[in-house]
Each structure stands twice: as structure tokens, then as C-alpha cells.
Design a protein around this nucleic acid. Structure first.
Lengths: 278, 278
DNA sequence: CCAAAAGTGTTCATTCTACACCCATGC
DNA sequence: GCATGGGTGTAGAATGAACACTTTTGG
């Protein structure tokens, strides 16, 4: 940061600041976009019998306003830089992301949120130069969202319907460069599951080791050896801690009741759970 | 992104765009800051005899302009959102980062650059709401920079003089929140050395395994077992490839000439080089 | 009883770590 | 020669992968 009108020599900083005109710059808009990810049963597949193991979904909204009206997009909106008629300024970027998310989709927002990166290529928005700070939010299985302001529709959409991942048709359907942002978020989530305890952010406060394994399987798109996974999780200090409780048990055809765990204190996993070796 | 004046129903997008006023928003500035890191011999330690193994340094500038005139800061400056009197718009954020870096320090810029994150807390800049997109640039040992526009002085400063890392006195000396940004960059670099081939970005195009190990040692601040490191690097596919050449040899007291390698094609390391186990 | 799911034991292969040792070079 | 640094061998420990097996539950 930082550069400006060249100060008169020896001008004190206070005097400099009072004479400073913040409108002297070309307008640039700063927005936040939220890639909200969760694991939920695939819509449309009936609840029939066999255990629903869940697939990754992303929260999308259909744009009610120009530009790109009618297309699916990540929920997002302008950051409030200063107090104004619309409301008070956002104290920081995460606050802006949560405010925008709740305005557009009315979802609860006490969830894991982290910054992904900022997208600012010229021409990515036809209106003006827009710098968009993308965030990733991880959530346990949540109810369907209600559409809010400027939003025609909001829904959890399975990754599989978005053509990212395989090939390079990343996000062919989304507005602006949101397909790219989504693909980056997915890659970030996949990679962070290896080295961090992030997977627990997809789960409710108490969960079974099997549920944790299903998160890994859903995000990585591969099956893992249940017995070895179980041991490895328990051998990773601080990943999970035993609650002493047992799962109620669901599942159709019987089976032992699993122990329930909660997220442990560790943010980083030592050793990591590598997906490399097939 | 995205939100706006509510469009008249059925207004076509083209008509909407032509009536759009980009000045209708509160001013927010977007800047880029660059955390340029390199490994170089500690300044002040004479070239006397024993092998110079290098320590991490960061490129800092002393602010010639208000605010915070005279304090050390990361090189940075405003992004050019649109073409204007100062020059053409920056096509994307990396272009802005490289332009700003060369304006402030006149260093070569064909180097590894990646985005770190965006800092936008209210009050981080006293002039106005500023969103700063921080970048990390990794460089081989470069000559001392020349100070450029708005810069009183530019220099490679050892990490050790900045009080980050140990304790939590992160970056006590830097302007704005640059100490925090630097600390985040250092942590990112440390972590990325484990999982990516990033370490080669600190080295010239041909290097020895020992030089590579010294990068790891400098960044992680610990010594590594030379023989095992050597084998592990060669066992990681795509990390380095043999050039067939041998080092000229420097070093005072003799020693075999080391083979020279160049960076291999791999960006990610499988398996990673974990720093966990002491 | 039988099937399904949780969780433990055990074996074998692979990888990591430490240390010993040989190779090539400067003085 | 001898010290220094590059590079390889190798034994023992630790870790990982696969598979068998026991335990607990639902139908």
C-alpha cells in the first residue's frame, strides 16, 4: 500500500491527513463472494434403504439483477467501505462476507470461514473494475436456503452438476468468473483436508469416525480403507476427542453403534492424511 | 460480487450497463503490497573463510511520503483500475504487483509471484478504506535494490531484525499492518516448502542439492540431515533434474564438486518433505 | 440366525533415521 | 597427506496397507 500526493517537506502527518481527498482516485469496487460448501444427500436420489453417504454441494443464487440476470452465481455483494445509508461499514472482510451471505440466502453464519483469494482481472465485470475477495465457507448439512435481496432463487447445487473437476470445463454455467473461483475453492478444500483438521467443519459438533471418513471420501471422490482410516484418525493428536457417547444409530440393516467424537484442538494434522497414494 | 440498482423488469442488459454510474459508491482504494523474500548472506558478517550459508531477507522500503513517512514498509501502491494520466490500467493483480515493485525498487521481476491474501480491516490506513492485496515474491539472491518513486530507501532486511517468528511481537517495526502481512507470508513460505517445489524459486537456474537444503534450513530455521535430504530430494519425482554439469566449486578447504540440478516440472511434491518430525 | 457396521490384531512392505563409510577436491 | 564437503550403503525403527477377525446391533 501507499503512495500519494507528495507531501510538502516537514508537513506533519496530521495536517497531511486532513487535506486528503479520498475521491481523487478512479473508482474501484470491492466485493466479497462466498463459496459455501457442504456435504448433503444428493437431491433426487430417494431415501430408499441403503445408507445415504452424501455428496458435496455448493450454495448458489440466481441473479435477479443485471448484469447476467438469471444466471447462477456465487452469493456475493459489495463491501461497505464506510458508514452510509445502507448501513454501517463492514469492520473487516469476513464481516462483509457473512453479512452478504445472510442477506442473499438467510443462512446461519456461525461457520468456518476463510479467505480464498482476490480476483481482479480487467473485464471480469462489465460494469466497472471490480475486485472480488472470494471466501470459502464450510458447513454441516444445512436446510435449503431462502432467497433474499436481489436473489431470484438460492439452492444447494451438487458439484457434479457444474462440470468442474474433470476436464477443464470449470464452472461452465456460472456468471462472471465464478466457475473459476469455485474450482479454486474446491481444490483448496481438497488440499486442506490433507494437512488440516478442516474436515470437521463439514460435520455437526458430535460425529462418528465413519462420518468423518465420508467427508474425506466425498471431497476427494475416492473411497478410503475404513479400518486404517479409523486408526489413523485416532493416532493423529488433537484431531478428534472422544465424547464418551455412542451414536443413536441409524442405518437399516443393523450394525454396532459408533462412538461419537468432537473436533479436537489441533488445526494442523501431524502427520497429515495424504491422498497421494491411491 | 454483484448487486445494484434494481433493474426495471425486462430492461435488457446492454441498456442497463450504459446507464450505470460507477461513481455511485463510497470510495475504496485497492492497493497491492509485495512481500519479496530471498536468501542471502547476512549483512555485516564478513566474507571470512567459512562457508556463507545465507539467511532469509525481506525487501523493505522506507516511506518518503505521508502517512507513516520514514517508517519501513513493504513496497506497494495503488492498483490502476482504469487507464488514466499515470498510465494504462493494470490488466490483473499480478501485473499491478510487478509494476509497483519495479517502480519502488527497480528490481528485475521475472520471478515467482503468488497472491497471499487481502487485508481490509477498517482503520488499517488512516486516509481512507484501503483493501490491500498482498503478494509473495520469491527470488534468488539479488543485488541491492535502488530506491524509486516515493521511496526514501530500499533494502534487503534480515527476518531476524524484525521480531516476527518468535514471541508474538510480529513485525513491530513496520508501517500499517505490514508486520502482520510479513508474518503471514513467512508462515506461508514455510508451509509451502513442505508440499511444493517452491524452494527452487529461491535459487538460480542451476543449483546443488546442498544449496537446496540450505534454503530449507534457512526458511525453517533448523538443520536437516544432509545425506537423507539428498536421497529424499532425488526420490521425489519431478522435483529436480540433473543437468549433467558439476559445480565450479568454491569453498575454502576442498571437497568434492557437487552435481548441478535444475528445477523439475513438478509443482507439488509427492511425497512431501515434512518439517514436523524434529 | 444372518447381515451390516464398528472396531481390533496381525502381517508384510515401505519409508524414515542415524551412522558408517567411500569419493573427489583444495591446500 | 589431511581436512572438507559430496554422495552411497545399510541396519533398525517407525509407519502404512491389506486382510482377517471379533463385537454389537437391526431385522
Amino acid at each position: 500500500m501507499t503512495e500519494d500526493r507528495t507531501p510538502q517537506h516537514d508537513e506533519p502527518e496530521s495536517r497531511f491527513l486532513s487535506g486528503y481527498d479520498p475521491h481523487a482516485f478512479a473508482p474501484a469496487a470491492v466485493t466479497v463472494d462466498v463459496v459455501a460448501l457442504t456435504i448433503r444427500p444428493e437431491a433426487g436420489t430417494g431415501e430408499t434403504g441403503a445408507r445415504r453417504t452424501g455428496t458435496p454441494h455448493v450454495l448458489l443464487t440466481r441473479r435477479a439483477a443485471h448484469p447476467q440476470r438469471g444466471r447462477w452465481a456465487l452469493p456475493g455483494g459489495f463491501v461497505r467501505a464506510e458508514d452510509g445509508p445502507d448501513g454501517p461499514a463492514d469492520p473487516d472482510l469476513p464481516d462483509a462476507a457473512l453479512r452478504v451471505l445472510s442477506e442473499k440466502t438467510r443462512l446461519p453464519t456461525e461457520l468456518h470461514l476463510e479467505q480464498l483469494g482476490t480476483y481482479g482481472a480487467r473485464g471480469r465485470d462489465p460494469r466497472m473494475r471490480v475486485f472480488s475477495v472470494a471466501h470459502m465457507l464450510l458447513a454441516p448439512d444445512l436446510p435449503d436456503p431462502h432467497s433474499g435481496r436481489d436473489t431470484e432463487e438460492a439452492a444447494w447445487v451438487p458439484w457434479s452438476e457444474l462440470g468442474h473437476g474433470e476436464g477443464s470445463r470449470a464452472g461452465r454455467d456460472l456468471a462472471f468468473d465464478h466457475g473459476r473461483i469455485l474450482a479454486d475453492a474446491v481444490e483448496r478444500a481438497r488440499s486442506k483436508l490433507e494437512y488440516t483438521a478442516l474436515a470437521t467443519a463439514f460435520l455437526p459438533s458430535a460425529f462418528t469416525i465413519t462420518a468423518l471418513r465420508e467427508v474425506y471420501q466425498a471431497v476427494w471422490g475416492r473411497t478410503l480403507h475404513a479400518a486404517n482410516f479409523h486408526r489413523k484418525i485416532l493416532a493423529t493428536p488433537g484431531f478428534v476427542e472422544d465424547t464418551g457417547e455412542l451414536a443413536e444409530h441409524g442405518g437399516s440393516g443393523g450394525g454396532r453403534r459408533a462412538r461419537l467424537y468432537r473436533a479436537g484442538g489441533a488445526a494442523l494434522l501431524h502427520p497429515p492424511l495424504l491422498r497421494s497414494t491411491q
